[in-house]
Amino acid sequence: MPETIKYSEEELVQLLQSGDQSAFEYLYDHYSGALNTVILKLISDQQLAEDILQEAFVKIWNNFSTYESSKGRLFTWMLNITRNLTIDTIRSKSFKKQAKIQKTENAVTYTSSNINENDKFDALGIRKQTMLLKEDQKRVIDLAYFEGLTQEEISKKLDIPLGTVKTRMRTAISVLKKILQA
């Protein structure tokens, strides 16, 4: 049954506001993979990433009443919650201690886990189409959207001028928009 139901954004929001559990299950099935990617971009510890993902969805469910659809889409809101939670965890003291110990061990698991990123979207062809993004455009989008870096931070990190960051970002987003229109 859950696979056959597809909600529009408004229906989903309405059902979640009324505390509908099957809508929440749909939300999880549909978006957990994307949010998981965001966490894994910032954290290499698989176990910790799973805990953060679980906590993020607990927050999404418990704080759903604070979501305002006039300010943006549901996914943007969920992504911000997840990203902030991950960044907060990284900044916490206990994480810093642990990270030192696990650093070497996890560097290996991280890369290997990313190779079998899911192929779920190949059916829609979108995954293939996002290949239209050039590698340097993708990098800027990933740093901003997934890792939450500001344009200035990206400019420093990649050692390229701020203007270049801005142009790359705009071009990349307009490419992504065109993919949808095609």
């Binding site: 993979g33 998981n36 990433a49 899911n118 979108i126 995954r127 997934f146």
Partner: peptide, 11 residues
Amino acid sequence: ENYALSNSTQP
């Protein structure tokens, strides 16, 4: 959003 979905990593 579609870019993020196309980069999903199933937990």
